[in-house]
Structures are given as structure tokens and as C-alpha cells.
Amino acid sequence: MEKSTDVPVQPGKRDFLKWLIGSATAAWVVSVAYPIFSFLKPPKQGEVEVSSVKAGKLSEMAKDSGMIVKFGTKPVILIRKADGDLKAFSGTCTHLDCTVQYRKDFGSIWCACHNGKYDLNGSNISGPPPKPLDEYKVIIKEDEIFISKGT
């Protein structure tokens, strides 16, 4: 190993290379820091979408009412019957894929598109729907309502 001796370098060239390394490093730091700081910023929807399971609080759901819950990419209708029982069905009408809703006045599930009706067991009882709605499992853990596939 020979010891490096101080060889004079043209000041202009030396400055340019150092300047280049310095500014490229700065740019590099920005290009790494930007994604990281963006990542740290909480997104608009601040929480994990727990669509596939958690549907809400039992205490916040009125008796004799229904709501649509996003289950993955499909809607699920959650119904709290007048007697307090919970039921969940696929929210997609078996007729032409509209989203169904709970109608208090009929006490049944109703599709606005063609007036299809299902009873609270998911069976198609009137109108054009050809098949019953698939049922989902409802589990209550403490006060949280969870919906899962399969009955």
C-alpha cells in the first residue's frame, strides 16, 4: 500500500464533482424521504376498512331496521328484526343485481328496481326474484356485530 501524496487538482474540476455528489445526494435524500413521509401521513380514511367482518355496534342499531354493509366488493344487508334478532343476507337482488333494502312498512327486504320482496329468512316471496338471498353469519362479540360468510 503506497501512501497517497497530495497531488494538486484543478480547483474547478474538484469543485464540480463535489458539487455534483452533494446535490445528487440531496436529491436522493428527497426522493427517499418523500415516499416515507407520504407514507406516514394518515390517509383520508384513517382506519383499515373492516368491511368483511365488523358491521357496527349492536347498541347503535335500532330494532326493526336494516343497513347495507360493504363485504369485500359485495354489499350485505344486515337486519335487526323487531324482536331484536340479527340477520344478514347478500345485499344483491337475485333478479338483476340491484341492491336491496329493508322496508319497515312491509317488514321485509325490498328491491327498488322491480319491487322484489324477500322475507326475513331471505326467501323470495313476491315479485321477480327467482332465488332466495344467501344468508351470512352474524356473530356478536361484546357490543360489536361481525358478519362472516356461511351460515
Binding site: K70, T73, K74, P75, L96, D97, C98, T99, C113, H114
Partner: peptide, 12 residues
């Protein structure tokens, strides 16, 4: 998912 609503509106 939202696009389903458009489908629904068209049928309605």
C-alpha cells in the same frame, strides 16, 4: 363497488 349504484340507477 360504487359502480353498482349506476347499474341500479339504470335499471330503475
Amino acid at each position: 363497488f360504487k359502480l353498482r349504484d349506476a347499474h341500479q340507477a339504470r335499471l330503475e
